[in-house]
């Protein structure tokens, strides 16, 4: 049955440093539109953001911190992009939209309704729909810092958007390798 089984069927798990370095390589090399997902913990998000900004000195990096649920993103990002012309946009806080979706539709937040076929979260529907516009009008690297359940939501409920990704990188505890300088550039777009 498993006669074609090879060592490539075994997962090769990277250490955090290697995975982070790969993220930087991806972002350094990408010239136009690109979708990247970073699976991280809320505690590490800010450290990762600061470090990415420091490690991409030749790229203009913007940060969009979402602190409340949203239904749409395209128009807001387009405006930011037109004003700031960044090369990379780091986005955190999309989980708030999913929390609201679960609360409104299922009465509680469980982080596990991604395989429910009766509904689609507005924001994922929006991203799935607008992907051509993101690609054609905002030709930058989008980096979503996300929790595992949010990644699952993308896989199940925004499959076409997810299918356009260039990479998913899992960065666990960044403290192991982090070394940062202060006063790094940030074009924060605090929401």
């Amino acid at each position: 049955m498993m006669k074609n089984y090879s060592h490539l069927d075994e997962d090769l798990l990277p250490d955090e440093k290697e995975e982070y370095q790969d993220l930087i390589s991806h972002l350094t090399r990408n010239r136009k539109f690109g979708l990247y997902f970073v699976q991280s913990t809320p505690l590490d998000d800010e450290k990762i953001i600061t470090k990415i900004i420091y490690d991409l000195p030749n790229k203009k990096v913007g940060v969009l911190r979402l602190i409340e649920p949203i239904d749409t993103l395209y128009e807001r990002v387009l405006e930011l992009y037109n004003n700031q012309q960044f090369d990379v946009l780091l986005i955190t806080g999309l989980e708030h939209s999913l929390y609201q979706y679960e609360q409104e539709n299922f009465g509680q937040i469980t982080e596990d309704k991604f395989s429910n076929l009766t509904k689609v979260p507005h924001i994922l529907n929006h991203l799935n729909q607008k992907r051509e516009l993101f690609r054609d009008n905002i030709p930058i690297s989008f980096v979503f810092l996300a929790r595992p359940f949010l990644i699952s939501y993308f896989i199940y409920r925004a499959p076409d958007f997810w299918d356009w990704r260039s990479a998913l990188l899992e960065i666990g505890s960044i403290n192991k390798f982090i070394s940062m300088r202060k006063n790094v550039f940030s074009s924060d777009c605090q929401s």
Binding site: D11, L12, S25, H26, R29, W162, A167, L168, E170
Partner: peptide, 28 residues
């Protein structure tokens, strides 16, 4: 292929880079 290139610091693309891209794609 793109992910393997992204995980490559110097050519040629190694088996390790390909395996790591495969590992990540498998997760989906």
């Amino acid at each position: 292929t793109q992910d393997a290139i992204g995980r490559t610091q110097n050519l040629p693309i190694s088996e390790r880079a390909v395996r790591r891209a495969i590992t990540q794609a498998r997760d989906t």
